Computed example of a mutant assay.
Amino acid sequence: MSSIALVSIHSRVRELAPGFIVSLIVAAAASFLSEHYGAPVMLFALLLGMALNFLSGDGRCKAGIEFTAREVLRIGVCLLGLRITLGQIAALGWEPVLLVVTSVAVTILLSMLVARLMGFQTLFGMLSGGATAICGASAAMAISAALPAHAAKEKATLFTVIGVSALSTVAMISYPMIAQWLDMSPTTAGVFLGATIHDVAQVVGAGYSMSHETGDIATVVKLMRVAMLLPVILCASMITRARGADSTGKRPPLLPWFAVGFIVLASINSTGLVPSVVQGMGNDLSRWFLIIAISALGMKTQLKELAAVGIKPILLMFGETIFLVGLVLLLLHWVW
């Protein structure tokens, strides 16, 4: 029995290896370009992946690319839990927590409403609103993994990742100037940057470009937004479960395994027993898994399909970004 299992595993590895290795190479190339040219690594991974979309057709790489875009993505989301501790959140007090919870909830709910009014599926509003309000491309990938299967889901996910990556880069440059123009204190500026910029890397870059104190606060506030992934994933999972059985005939679990892993790792990390070396390795692995997964997603799409979406999704995401900034500024004025 064990020999049969080993043969099966060996056969499965041989089937998946070509697609995974190609995705890994694309991710490495994207990281190299990002480090040398300063653009978001997720954007490079998508663009390079789309340039190799012919590999996802019927061939040796197809199964591995499918596996990487689905399962490797979920492992990367699970490992995001190592970025968060309850102590980090408690140290800032209740005001940033209230600001983050309010801004995330209101932005996503309004995005779902506006998406419906614009003729899109409500779930596209949850996807784009979640990416804008929580943590950019990582949130888009995590929410997409929990949403019901749909013919247009992968295209919507890729479009959201491209849009939120571009907007995050613009925000990293322009938001510190807004903070300086409004004469914000280091603490207020940190909360503002952490609560509005989409991706973690851009928050870190913008925060520490102002001061060390601003960078520290911005990073913690951003991680509070990352923690909001859990309730949003839970809502997406409940929607998926309400839709009934999946393609295999099984009813989806109330909470996906990667969300459970996220909770477990965040809880363990909050005990203070996890060495900083392990935290760093977990963060690096999470980052790499997400880049590899998005490289595979890029290989599964056609550029002409993304070009066909029109101007309305772009306007939706731009509007979400502007609304989030306005809401956070209003809440800062009210709370502080």
Rank of each mutant, 00 (worst) to 15 (best):
Q279T: 15
I239H: 11
L229I: 08
L230C: 12
P275D: 06
M224L: 14
M281N: 12
I314T: 09
G249H: 13
M228K: 05
K222A: 10
M317S: 13
Q302D: 08
L265Q: 13
L255N: 04
I314R: 02
V221C: 03
T271L: 07
G249K: 03
G244Q: 06
M238E: 05
K250Q: 09
L255M: 15
S247P: 02
L265E: 00
V277T: 00
V260N: 04
L306K: 13
L273I: 03
S267D: 06
V260P: 00
V221R: 00
I239A: 12
M228N: 07
V260H: 08
P256D: 01
G280F: 11
G282M: 02
V232K: 01
N269K: 04
I233S: 07
L273C: 09
I268H: 05
G244T: 10
R243Y: 14
L265I: 08
D284P: 05
L255V: 14
G249R: 05
A266D: 02
E305N: 13
D284G: 09
V232Y: 02
L297P: 04
A296N: 02
S270Y: 08
K250M: 13
G244F: 10
S247M: 09
V309D: 10
K300Q: 11
D246E: 12
L229H: 13
T240I: 11
F258C: 02
R243W: 02
T271S: 07
L223A: 04
V277F: 04
F318S: 14
S270G: 10
L230E: 08
M281C: 15
L315I: 12
L297Y: 13
